[in-house]
């Protein structure tokens, strides 16, 4: 009897330990998100609190981090770079992504649906550095030939690449949103004599509005945070672009391109971490909004 009791308490202790371990792993995601913010902030904090010109950062286009005489950290051109490439990408990806989502969810046969979903999933798996390489080689020469542009690494190239990269996420989240519309809505629309398109346009799209918005937001987050593809495909020129055929440099590409050369803990190094804080904040807000929007539907 006594032996059994000991065995039992040993089992209980083991179980208690494992459950604690599971709990720690469960909440680890919170730690990691805070950890990311904390450590990125920590590396940039010294300069942020000491000599950082926040006005210059947001309003000046003069980015001379390694200049010997007049060091300037104006990130306006970089912010515009990220903004322009993301905007163009969304201009392409939103109609195509939502169109594909509608086609997959409402207009094609179950077999074709499965096949298309697998292709879209494989598309999402292509590594960003391969996308960048495609931009550097295939897209580059295509753009030079088609538009008679002096160089093919520009906003257009980066925008198209980013569009193709964010289409899969828009398609899969958008399709989920359309699928979540109750079947009774479709039946009611069909009973009223709607064609499939009328049903999609008048019933499904309004009903799935929030989910589709979340899909677009997540696409924006993906495009704005992408690094390697834009580093390779947008050219390297720190200025405000006058058109889609001009090269730019984004926030993400700047960190990737300059962190290797900036001496650890120098001002330049710390400013790159401040850009990291900015990027983290942007994507945090975008993701939070997308999540709140999606929750909105579930509550209903």
């Amino acid at each position: 009897m006594k032996m059994r009791g000991m065995f039992h308490s040993r089992e209980l202790l083991k179980e208690w330990l494992i459950e604690k371990l599971i709990w720690i792993c469960g909440i680890s995601a919170i730690f990691f998100v805070f950890g990311i913010f904390f450590f990125v902030f920590r590396e940039g904090a010294d300069y942020l609190l000491r000599g950082f010109h926040i006005r210059e950062f947001f309003t000046s286009i003069e980015w001379y981090p390694t200049s010997r005489t007049q060091v300037r950290y104006g990130a306006l051109a970089l912010i515009t770079g990220t903004f322009s490439v993301t905007l163009l990408a969304m201009f392409i990806a939103v109609p195509f992504g939502l169109g594909t989502a509608i086609f997959i969810s409402e207009f094609c046969s179950p077999r074709a649906r499965e096949a298309l979903k697998i292709i879209i999933e494989l598309l999402a798996a292509i590594p960003s550095v391969v996308w960048g390489f495609i931009g550097l080689t295939v897209m580059n020469s295509l753009i030079i030939h088609l538009f008679n542009a002096p160089l093919g690494l520009n906003v257009l190239n980066g925008g198209i690449i980013l569009a193709l990269m964010s289409v899969p996420i828009i398609v899969s989240i958008g399709e989920d949103a359309l699928k979540a519309v109750p079947e009774s809505y479709r039946e009611a629309a069909t009973a009223l004599g709607c064609t499939r398109w009328q049903m999609t346009f008048r019933v499904l799209l309004p009903a799935a509005r929030n989910g589709l918005l979340a899909a677009v937001l997540l696409g924006v987050g993906r495009a704005a945070g992408e690094t390697m593809a834009v580093l390779m495909a947008t050219g390297h020129s720190i200025r405000i672009p006058g058109g889609v055929l001009e090269p730019v440099r984004t926030l993400t590409a700047t960190i990737a391109a300059e962190l290797g050369e900036a001496p650890v803990h120098s001002d330049h190094y710390q400013v790159l971490f401040i850009i990291g804080i900015l990027l983290f904040s942007i994507t945090f807000i975008v993701n939070l909004t997308a999540d709140l929007v999606v929750r909105g539907i579930r509550k209903k």
């Binding site: 469960g26 990311i36 992408e226 993400t252 971490f273 945090f284 993701n287 997308a290 999540d291």
Partner: peptide, 26 residues
């Protein structure tokens, strides 16, 4: 927690690089 998981997935890869450099390397 779920929100943190979603956000972790959305953090740009280059910010992960900064985090790795700041936390693990240094």
């Amino acid at each position: 927690i779920n929100l943190a998981v979603v956000n972790l997935a959305g953090v740009p890869s280059i910010v992960h690089a900064l985090f790795g450099l700041g936390a693990f390397v240094l």
